[in-house]
Design a protein around this nucleic acid. Structure first.
Length: 469
RNA sequence: GGUCCCAUCGUCUAGCGGUUAGGACAUCGGCCUCUCACGCCGAGAACCUGGGUUCAAAUCCCGGUGGGAUCACCA
């Protein structure tokens, strides 16, 4: 009996494209709900659209979910492999007189739809074949005989009680002429047969819910609980789409985002736990509840996601970040052979990188054989004055025994004092010398990470370079 | 157009009849400082509107307005 109380949720994407931000959040909510209650999270691929479904999309969805850490307990189930189940359910409906065959052509239907719309009427199936008692023939479909009186109410866990007049609903097609089920039918059969207890999905499905409930009842299934989560909008309040920027989960990985940042961002879009902004996965599982999911749509805010990413980079484990950074360094054609160096670079850049891409770019100078000087920076700091400072450093450095952050800084301060210069006037030429730019981590830190030999070599190169100028 | 949903700073949100309406991102100041960041301190910024109910409404009810979703042999 206790097994009957187990919550079972599912994520059921159609493999017609990559996993997008909205789908990922829906998956995340389902996953969290199951994990919170110690239930099961099931993955089902809704590939009944033979035209648009692709294997690449299926793989892309798996990859994205795996990257986000949304592991599933059962599945993936494929609807295309379950055709017999749907056929059997259609048979039951037909036998019970709850469905009928219809041989109206798509063209005729489309014609009527247009006419209805033009006359300001609801474009609803007119019941042409309802009482004809047609036999199967090529091109015919099966329609559900939707009750035309009464009401159907949804007790939504997020939106509350919502009622629909059944007369608003028409006789939807459950089996297409190609023998495949339509979405509203397959989803009901599958959710019922897979024992899904809680259907958590986007609220764009809210209007489908009454007809699905009617199908559950007609088929003699227990109706699951529904929870419709609000949509994610773009900055113009329209449904989030490509024109608002990246919408693919994997695009964020490529842009150097950490999965925990995306998860943390997504979960807070529509859900909250008091004033808390940062959540570990354990906390999310512990705190998540549908009661605290909001009812209104949310605008996707890339700035806040970026802030979270920066946070997780700043707080992240250095070894792990070093592993994650390597591919991005290689994308920049950098030779990465020294793992210890990568770790030190991560240490230097953790507090000043919003993404791994940014970290790789600003850390590229550590890995190059020769420094690429930014022309403006070189012009400004590798001048006569700068060269004098560099020469002074070059005199002291080889003999410096205390090559530590403190030791190096003391040396630089002493040089500045001797030459009656501000510290920055010594450091900026050195910074350009070592990094090619005027912006970098603390110069002492850069020197330690680079090592004394490379520092000396780069100073010599800079002196050579500026002499030639 | 019909149906359904939604409505607190620019954005994400807290609030569940009595609060100086709180936090976060972003923005703008300041501090720190070798640059840039990080960090710290501070500022500006919101209850869509009109009616009720109530001693008291951001909170409950109704209307309006606005936004969104959906009306396929797509999912």
């Amino acid at each position: 009996m206790s097994n009957d109380n187990k919550k079972r949720t599912r994520f059921a994407p159609s493999p017609t494209g990559y996993l997008h931000i909205g789908g990922a959040r829906t998956a995340l909510f389902n996953w969290l709900y199951a994990r919170h209650y110690g239930g099961k999270f099931i993955l089902r691929i809704e590939d009944t659209d033979q035209e648009r479904s692709t294997e690449e999309s299926t793989r892309a969805i798996f990859d994205a979910m795996t990257w986000l850490g949304l592991n599933w307990d059962e599945g993936p189930h494929y609807q295309a492999e379950r055709i017999e189940k749907y056929k059997e359910a259609v048979r039951r409906l037909l036998d019970a007189g709850k469905a009928f065959r219809c041989d109206c052509t798509p063209d005729a239907l489309e014609e009527k739809r247009k006419k209805a719309l033009a006359e300001g009427r609801k474009p609803k199936y007119d019941g042409t074949c309802r009482e004809k008692n047609l036999e199967w023939k090529p091109g015919s479909v099966v329609r559900f005989r939707t009750p035309q009186i009464g009401m159907t109410t949804v007790n939504d866990l997020i939106k509350g009680i919502i009622s629909f007049n059944n007369e608003e609903l028409d006789d939807l097609i459950v089996e297409r002429s190609d023998g495949y089920p339509t979405y509203n039918f397959a989803v009901v059969v599958d959710d019922a047969e897979m024992g899904i207890t809680h259907v958590i999905r986007g609220d764009d499905h809210l209007n489908n819910t009454p007809r699905q409930i009617l199908l559950y009842e007609a088929l003699g299934y227990e109706v699951p609980k529904f929870a419709h989560v609000p949509m994610i909008l773009g900055s113009d309040k329209a449904r989030l789409s490509k024109r608002h920027g990246a919408t693919s989960v994997m695009a964020y990985r490529e842009m150097g985002y950490l999965p925990e940042a995306l998860v943390n961002y997504l979960v807070r879009l529509g859900w909250s736990y008091g004033d808390q902004e940062i959540f570990s996965l354990d906390e999310l599982i512990r705190y998540f509840s549908l009661e605290s999911v909001g009812r209104s749509a949310a605008v996707f805010n890339p700035e806040k996601l970026l802030w979270l990413n920066q946070h997780y980079i700043k707080e992240g484990d250095t070894d792990r970040l070093a592993d994650l950074l390597c591919p991005f360094l290689k994308d920049l054609d950098l030779r990465v052979t020294d793992k210890a160096l990568v770790k030190n670079v991560v240490g230097d850049l953790k507090t000043r990188s919003k993404t791994l891409v940014e970290m790789a770019e600003s850390g590229a100078f550590y890995f190059r054989d020769s420094v690429e000087y930014d022309p403006k920076s070189a012009e400004q700091f590798l001048d006569r004055e700068g060269r004098a400072s560099l020469n002074a450093i070059l005199e002291e450095l080889p003999a410096l025994s205390d090559y530590t952050k403190e030791g190096v800084e003391n040396m630089l301060r002493t040089i500045a004092e001797k030459r009656t210069l501000k510290l920055k006037n010594v450091i900026q030429p050195l910074r350009v010398t070592l990094t090619g730019k005027t912006v970098s981590p603390g110069i002492d830190q850069v020197m330690i990470t680079l090592g004394k030999e490379k520092v000396i070599a780069r100073i010599k190169s800079a002196l050579e370079f500026s002499k030639a100028e």
